[in-house]
Simulated scan of single mutants.
Amino acid sequence: MTNPLEPLMADIIGRIERGVPPWRQPWASGGEPSLPRRADGEPFSGSNAWLLAFVGAERGYASPYWFTFRQALSLEAPVRK
Rank of each mutant, 00 (worst) to 15 (best):
M1P: 13
T2Q: 13
T2I: 15
T2Y: 12
N3Q: 04
N3M: 03
N3Y: 00
N3K: 00
P4C: 00
P4E: 05
L5A: 15
L5N: 10
E6F: 07
P7I: 06
P7G: 03
P7Y: 01
L8N: 06
L8E: 12
M9F: 15
M9W: 12
M9D: 13
D11R: 11
D11S: 13
I12L: 08
I12Q: 05
I13N: 10
I13V: 14
G14R: 05
G14K: 05
R15P: 07
R15K: 13
I16P: 04
E17A: 09
R18F: 08
R18E: 13
R18Q: 15
G19T: 02
V20D: 14
V20A: 12
P22I: 06
W23M: 14
R24Q: 14
Q25F: 06
Q25K: 11
P26K: 00
W27F: 12
A28R: 08
A28L: 14
S29F: 01
S29C: 15
S29N: 15
S29V: 03
S29Y: 01
G30M: 00
G31S: 12
G31T: 14
E32Q: 12
E32F: 08
P33M: 05
P33S: 00
P33I: 03
S34Q: 15
S34P: 09
S34I: 10
P36L: 02
R38F: 02
R38H: 10
R38K: 13
R38Y: 08
A39P: 01
A39M: 01
D40G: 11
D40L: 06
D40P: 10
D40S: 04
G41L: 00
E42I: 08
P43D: 03
P43S: 01
P43H: 00
F44K: 00
F44T: 06
F44V: 03
F44D: 07
S45G: 12
G46C: 07
G46Q: 10
S47K: 07
S47H: 07
N48V: 02
N48L: 08
A49L: 06
W50E: 13
L51N: 08
L51Q: 11
L52Q: 02
L52V: 03
L52F: 04
A53N: 03
F54C: 10
F54I: 10
V55S: 10
V55D: 09
V55C: 08
G56P: 06
A57I: 02
A57G: 08
A57R: 01
R59N: 09
R59L: 15
G60V: 02
G60L: 04
Y61L: 09
Y61S: 09
Y61Q: 09
A62C: 02
A62W: 04
A62M: 04
A62G: 09
A62S: 06
S63N: 07
Y65W: 05
Y65T: 06
Y65H: 07
F67M: 06
F67R: 08
T68P: 07
T68Q: 01
R70Y: 14
R70K: 11
R70S: 15
Q71G: 04
Q71F: 01
A72L: 00
A72M: 05
A72V: 04
S74T: 11
S74Q: 12
L75W: 07
L75C: 05
E76M: 01
E76F: 05
E76A: 06
A77Q: 15
A77P: 08
A77G: 13
P78G: 09
P78A: 07
P78E: 14
P78C: 07
V79M: 00
V79L: 02
R80W: 08
R80E: 14
R80G: 12
K81W: 13
K81L: 13
